[in-house]
Design a protein around this nucleic acid. Structure first.
Lengths: 159, 159
DNA sequence: TCAATGTCCTACTAAAAAGGTAGGTTATTA
DNA sequence: TAATAACCTACCTTTTTAGTAGGACATTGA
């Protein structure tokens, strides 16, 4: 599991699509402007996202991209994997200095951990990221209203 | 949160230390041989790990490195952060095209997610990675013994 | 029909990061 | 005092990142 700027761009762009879902196809030019990612770079990323069937495209004027599935069924791990194409492995399998069997121990520990991270990201879908944020904003607004009504000193509200 | 080979090397090396904890200082040469990471590269990584007080060193013959704390109190996120020194930000804060406020939405969604990942890795300590593996191995061994005794067909055991 | 708008595709490139070399100095031990 | 191993700095090669350039193809609407 790698997690670089490339993956971040892809997730950000997919979130952008999710947020504007239902407004018809979204052009990469729009995303480029909104998210500050170069158009050509987005094109390369979306070529991969399309090959992995995470988005579908509409060509021609008024065209653009849409999520190919519901935002609630697209998981972060899929997105990251699509654009990052794990060269990975790096296993000591073919290594000369890894002959005693027990030596591989921590290598395997790492792959175990890596698998945990992957599963974690495989449980976070686009819709829930958006929902989580909206819930937080609602809570923030409510807290502010309470402040207005009860006029608690700021310090107590913090806690 | 970045997650590259660099971070993997660091975590792997730290796991190696954790596994050999109690055997006195472990030299980087040992880790280099066991894990297949170049000595000089390890030196660079451990300079950072030491600055972040995750390991302590003993110089001279018989010297090496040891975890500065119990393996159960060292978390993966700390290790990754130590060596990866997030250039990060990449926030649109100073961006020209990010003026309408609402435009930043997905940027913020990403940082939210990033924070989630960070918290996840901040809850996994070295000892628990090792423990989890040992538990699994015990389970595997027991299953094998059961096979021996009951002689179930392999297919049923799988399920 | 044709110009505009978009995806789609390939090749190239500048800059940064990853990963590794080289060549030391310093502290410690036997 | 020789060997060991941390510690430090500068450099270098390769890979990856992020972006450019230039176009072909599909679709729309004027």
């Amino acid at each position: 599991m790698r997690l670089t700027a490339k993956g971040r761009y892809a997730v950000t762009a997919m979130l952008d699509l999710a947020v504007h879902q239902g407004e018809g196809p979204i052009s990469l030019a729009d995303i480029s402007e909104r998210q500050g990612i170069s158009l050509s770079y987005l094109e390369q990323l979306f070529a991969k996202l399309r090959r992995n069937e995470l988005v579908k495209s509409v060509r021609g004027p008024g065209g653009g991209y849409q999520l190919s599935r519901e935002a609630g069924t697209i998981y972060v791990a899929e997105i990251v994997d699509s654009v990052d194409e794990r060269v990975d492995a790096t296993r000591c399998a073919g290594r000369a200095n890894c002959h005693h069997g027990r030596e591989c121990l921590t290598h395997e520990l790492w792959t175990d951990l890596s698998e945990q991270i992957h599963q974690f990201l495989n449980n976070i879908d686009l819709a829930s990221i958006i929902a989580k944020r909206e819930a937080r904003e609602r809570a923030d607004r409510q807290r502010l209203q309470q402040d207005d009504i009860i006029r608690l000193p700021a310090k107590e509200v913090e806690a």
